[in-house]
Structures are given as C-alpha cells and as structure tokens.
C-alpha cells in the first residue's frame, strides 16, 4: 500500500543527453506551467493570511499581497471576540469538541469494524462490504434532508449529538481498516492465537491494536480533515448561534455583517474584511497544517486497497 513519491526514475544509461536536448523546450514549458500553477494555488491562502494585518480600507486599496502590521491581527481578533458577546469563543470550542468527539468515536468504531470483517467469519460480510462501499461513494450531502427528518423525530435538532453521531458514521474509515488489517495481519496469526485460548476481544487488544498506530493516525487524519470544514450538516442540524461550528459561524458573519455585503448594515463591533479573513484563517489553517504534514497519508488513504506495494 505504500507509495514512494521520490522513487528515482530507472536509469537510462545512454539516452539522457540526447533526450535532454530534444525535449528541452517542452520540458521547460511543462515545468514553467507546474510552477505557475503552484504559485496560483498558494496566492488565495496568502491573501487570507495577510488580510487581517490591514485595516478594511487597506484591504481594498493596498497591494492585496502586502503586509501592514501585527497590530492588525490583534485588532481583528479583539473585534471578533467582542462580536455578539463573544460568540466566536463558543464556535471555536464547539468546533474543537465536536471534532474531537467525532474523530475518537469514528476512528474507534471504524477500526473495530475493519478488524471484525478481516478477522472473523461472520455472515453477511459481502452485504456489509457493499453497503460500506456504497456509503463511501455517495456524497454525505445527499442524505442531509432524510437525516434532518430522522433527527427531528427523535428531538435531536439543535443538539450537538446529532452532528456528532451522524458524522461518526465513517464508512471510508471502516473500509480503510479492513484493507489495513487484511494486508498486515495474516489469518494464521489469529488462528494460532485462538488455539492458544485467546478470545476474539483479545485478538483485537493483543494482536491488532498494537499494530494499529499507523492506521489510527490515518483514520484520525481523514476524520478530522473531512469534518473540520463541514458546513451543510451543522448548518441544518444546529440552528442556534451558540451551537454553530466555525465554518457555520463564518457563514453567519457573511450574512449578518457588512463585511462582504455593505447592504447588511453596521454591527455594534466592526466586523469587516480583516475580521472575516481572520475567522477564515481559524477554519482553514488547522486543516492546512494537517494537510502539509500528512500529504503522503492523504494520497495513500484515498487510494486504499488499490495501490499495491
């Protein structure tokens, strides 16, 4: 399942010099385009990071990629903190706690499910795998209205449990775990442990779990990345502002302040473009850090089960 990103191209003993000359223009054009796209990809994030250093007027008139002062960040942060009696703190705490609960619950249930399917001979394995794959490939947004109806029936609307429970269904994680356990632990190990009197729970705690650290890291990574920026589900399930997550709160800042749309009228504390950009940083930067650190994991995981060693 491992992918070597820096795999050296096989040596071509005689051809290289000739080839280099032949393809040089195309080669430079390709590389130039790759670098251009890399710069283009980074510019929006750069703008986001630099915007809170400026005043609202400077955001419009100064060079978009210039830095003004560190004081700008402090001012924007204070304004955000004072907005609606400090509701931002609630959004940050909500985002952190909901995500923590989702990451733990989703990773544990998915890891156990993957282990059971790979290590046991229970019935309906095929039904389980197909339904998991279907859930994995159907976008979660498709089920939002049906889920709302269900949550409404059990009075969980405007209760964070609704988002935590729904988001803890982690079919991709269960599939990833199944592939991981199938590839790393041969069935003979389970058989001999069983002969030694090991219970099924013991198989997980004594054999599978100690070997699961890379898997659990991967599961936590995908659960975090998939849920931190999620907008639609909490937007529908949690209508009270004190239950918002950061992405939903950022959306609320759009439509309740004049930052983007001056037609919205002034707020008691100035929430303008620098403040909105700072709120955007709070949403985007944690995911960016996790992405940059775990770039290889993302790709390995997304192609789980189909990339061979």
């Amino acid at each position: 399942m491992s992918i070597d990103f820096d795999k050296k191209a096989p040596a071509t003993p005689e051809a290289p010099r000739k080839k280099k000359r032949k393809i040089s223009i195309g080669h430079y054009a390709v590389n130039g385009w790759l670098i251009f796209w890399a710069i283009f990809s980074v510019i929006p994030m750069l703008w986001l990071i630099l915007a809170p250093s400026k005043t609202d007027r400077q955001v419009s008139y100064k060079n978009p990629l210039s830095f003004a002062s560190f004081h700008g960040y402090i001012r924007a942060w204070k304004n955000l903190q004072d907005f609606n009696s400090g509701v931002l703190a609630h959004w940050v705490i909500n985002s952190v706690t909901y995500n923590l609960a989702i990451v733990v619950f989703a990773s544990v249930t998915a890891s156990l499910a993957g282990f059971v399917i790979s290590a046991s001979r229970i019935r309906f394995k095929k039904t389980f795998l197909i339904s998991t794959l279907i859930m994995m490939l159907v976008p979660p947004v498709a089920l939002v209205i049906p889920l709302f109806i269900e949550m409404n029936k059990v009075n969980l609307i405007d209760n964070p449990l609704s988002v935590i429970l729904i988001s803890s269904l982690y079919p991709f994680g269960a599939f990833l775990s199944y592939i991981y356990y199938s590839n790393t632990i041969p069935p003979e190990i389970y058989e001999s442990a069983r002969l030694d009197g090991c219970s099924d729970f013991g198989l997980y705690t004594k054999i599978a779990f100690p070997l699961s650290h890379p898997l659990l890291a991967l599961l936590a990574f995908f659960a975090f990345v998939g849920n931190w920026g999620n907008y639609f589900m909490p937007y529908i399930m949690l209508p009270s502002p004190e239950h918002y997550t950061l992405p939903v709160g950022l959306g609320a800042l759009f439509f309740s302040t004049p930052a983007i749309n001056p037609g919205n009228g002034a707020t008691s504390v100035p929430i303008l473009k620098p403040e909105i950009a700072l709120a955007g940083i709070l949403v985007a930067v944690p995911v960016m850090i996790v992405f940059l650190i775990s770039q290889k994991r993302l790709i390995r995981g997304m192609l789980a089960g189909s990339i061979k060693e």
């Binding site: 990809s41 955001v59 990345v225 759009f254």
Partner: peptide, 30 residues
C-alpha cells in the same frame, strides 16, 4: 510544487466562498 497544490484543498465551504469572492472581486483581487 506538490505541497503548494494541496493548499487550496483546505479551503472549502464557507472559507472557499470568502476566498473565491475576493479572487473574483475586481477591487480586492490579488
């Protein structure tokens, strides 16, 4: 270059709307 390509992936949902709005607004855009 690969690291740079991953950066826009963390811009989703409401942050994406904010950023792409800025990108397309002739008075604000980089």
């Amino acid at each position: 270059v690969r690291l740079a390509y991953i950066v826009p992936a963390c811009i989703s949902g409401s942050v994406a709307v904010l950023l792409w709005y800025v990108l397309l607004e002739p008075t604000l855009s980089p």
